[in-house]
Simulated scan of single mutants.
Amino acid sequence: MTDKRFTGSFVGVKPLQQGRLLRYLQTILPALSSQKIRGDNSLSALKFLFSTQGRVTRLPFILFVVGLNLILTGSYFLIQTYFPKEDMMRYGLALSIPAFVTFITLWPAFAVTVKRLHDVNWSAFPALGLFIPIVVGIAGTSFISFQNFDTDQFVAAHQKVSWVTSISSYYVYALLLVLSLVKGTKGQNRYGSDPLSKGGGAEAAF
Rank of each mutant, 00 (worst) to 15 (best):
D3Y: 01
F6Q: 08
F6S: 07
T7L: 09
G8W: 11
G8F: 10
G12P: 01
V13R: 04
L16Y: 12
Q17C: 05
Q18R: 07
R23K: 15
L25M: 14
L25I: 10
T27R: 06
S33R: 08
S33K: 09
Q35W: 08
Q35T: 07
K36D: 14
R38F: 06
S42P: 14
S42W: 12
A45N: 08
F48Q: 01
L49P: 07
L49F: 12
F50V: 07
S51E: 09
Q53F: 02
Q53M: 08
T57K: 13
R58D: 11
L59H: 10
F61M: 03
F64G: 01
F64P: 01
V66I: 10
G67K: 04
L68S: 14
I71P: 02
T73S: 14
T73P: 01
L78W: 10
Q80N: 14
T81K: 15
Y82W: 06
F83G: 03
F83I: 10
R90H: 10
A94I: 04
L95R: 04
S96F: 08
A99C: 05
F100S: 13
F100E: 04
F100L: 15
V101C: 12
F103D: 06
W107K: 07
A111Y: 00
V114L: 02
K115D: 01
K115N: 05
R116E: 04
L117F: 11
N121K: 03
A124K: 10
A124L: 09
F125D: 11
P126N: 04
G129R: 02
L130K: 01
I132E: 07
I134Q: 10
I134H: 07
V136Q: 10
I138D: 02
A139I: 12
S142T: 13
S142Q: 11
F143N: 13
I144V: 15
I144L: 15
S145K: 13
N148I: 05
F149L: 14
D150V: 00
D150W: 00
Q153L: 08
Q153S: 12
F154P: 00
F154Q: 01
V155T: 12
A156V: 14
H158R: 06
K160S: 13
S162Y: 09
V164E: 07
T165V: 15
I167N: 00
Y171T: 10
V172C: 06
V172M: 04
Y173P: 09
A174C: 09
L176K: 06
V182K: 14
K183A: 12
K183F: 12
K186R: 11
K186D: 14
Q188C: 02
Q188Y: 11
N189M: 03
N189F: 00
R190A: 08
D194R: 03
D194L: 05
P195I: 01
L196F: 05
S197H: 05
G200D: 04
G201C: 03
A202M: 11
A202D: 12
E203M: 04
A204R: 10
A205H: 12
F206T: 12
F206M: 11
